Simulated assay, not measured.
Amino acid sequence: MLNIAYIGFGKSTNRYHLPYLKLRQDKFNIARVVTPTLGKRAEEQAALEAEGTIFSTEIDDIIQDQTIDLVVVVTPSDKHYQITKQLLLAGKNVMVDKPMATSEIEARDLVNLAYDKGLFLMPFQSRRFDSDFLTVQRVIKNGYLGRLVDLEVHMDHYRPNDGKELGTSVEGSLFDHGVHLVDQIISLFGMPNIATYDLRATRILNSPVDDQMEINLFYPKAFKATLQTTELAAIQYPKWQLRGTHGTFVKYEVDEQENDLKTGIMPGEARFGVDTPQHYGHLVYYNQSGDRIEKFIPSIQGDYGRVYDSVYNTLVKGTPKLVSDEQMLSVMKILSAGVKENGPHVIKF
């Protein structure tokens, strides 16, 4: 069993991490939590303390605890680099929420430090286990579409009144929602040859914080992946569109885990995160005989807890990390290039 310590006890820790560990108590023990606001989530804190978790306000409490096998950093994004480096220097294995740093330079520093010290370092890329993404992976693997030509993936909302007047690039859509999409594409296709960027502040004009983005990633054999996010989508756009030489796949609905978690439906409960048949992706392709085949593809059930399964297997069994060092750095290279210049621009890698 691995002893885990958390730095941060806000919404993300309680919504996207801890519920999944309740199904994995044979593998993980929540030994410590460090938070600057003790008692802010009194009910959740009391429940963990009743099971033996120690709460405190100082990171040094974790650093000095030699029984801790893994520290999970779930703090504001601009603190990730500083806290993660402090933990690595102290000899701790770390999983850090996304984005793992504010730049490629910072990320490379962390990766090199972890490598030199023989420590585990990985970002919490939970959306590799989104239902819709897992289903897209299967469609691609099964070869229904032939050679891929275009892929479009969206992460859209309608939040017209939530724009920010002040802030930094790490608070914008590219480093927030975009990091998930970039990681998904990197996990499928690796590093592109060229990227084009269009980052804009659309709700509060002239804000330094982008809230809408489009990235085009160009690969060999005429393949392009388009990643888009907006906060002004009053009418839903497909989450995924894939077009290839043999067919097309379209999926509208996103993974249901986040919606269920927000409404209090927890992992392990009946129908948690299960896609309904009317939300299955639509596939049209032509087989080797030239017949047009049209069907709906049942969604693979997602499970963010599988990130923790992968961490356990790496630390206990020595399996490769879910997110490799090369993939971490590729993601951060693409993010950093996006904010390297103002306005639409092209970057060659």
Rank of each mutant, 00 (worst) to 15 (best):
L2A: 04
Y6P: 01
I7E: 06
G8A: 08
G8L: 02
G10Y: 05
S12R: 07
T13I: 03
H17V: 03
L18C: 01
K22P: 04
R24G: 01
D26V: 00
A31L: 12
A31P: 07
R32S: 03
G39I: 06
R41Y: 11
E43M: 06
A47P: 00
E51I: 10
I54K: 12
E58K: 15
I59M: 10
D61S: 10
I63N: 04
D69P: 10
V72W: 07
V74D: 05
T75P: 02
P76D: 01
S77H: 12
T84D: 02
K85I: 04
Q86A: 06
L88Q: 00
L88P: 00
L89V: 02
A90D: 00
G91S: 01
P99I: 04
E104R: 10
A107V: 09
A107E: 01
R108L: 06
L113H: 06
A114M: 05
Y115M: 08
F120W: 05
F124E: 03
Q125V: 14
R128M: 15
D130F: 08
D130Y: 08
D132Y: 08
T135V: 08
Q137H: 13
Q137W: 05
V139L: 04
V139M: 07
N142D: 14
L145T: 03
G146I: 08
R147H: 11
V149G: 08
D150Q: 09
L151A: 00
L151R: 00
V153Q: 06
G167L: 05
S169E: 11
S169L: 02
H177R: 15
I186K: 02
F189M: 04
I194V: 13
A195H: 00
A195G: 04
L199S: 09
L205I: 15
E214K: 15
P220Q: 13
T226S: 11
Q228I: 15
T229Y: 12
T230W: 05
L232C: 07
A234R: 14
P238L: 05
L242P: 02
T248P: 01
K251A: 02
K251P: 01
E253M: 09
E253R: 10
D255E: 08
Q257P: 02
E258M: 11
N259P: 01
D260Y: 12
L261G: 03
I265D: 01
F272L: 12
F272D: 07
V274E: 11
Q278C: 12
Q278R: 11
H282C: 12
L283R: 09
K295P: 08
K295M: 12
D303V: 06
G305I: 12
G305L: 06
S310W: 11
S310Q: 09
T314Q: 01
T314D: 04
T314L: 01
L315H: 05
V323C: 11
Q327V: 10
L329Y: 03
L329V: 06
S330T: 11
M332E: 06
K333L: 10
I334T: 03
S336Q: 03
G338P: 11
K340F: 04
E341H: 10
E341S: 14
G343C: 04
P344R: 09
K348N: 13
K348R: 14
F349V: 08
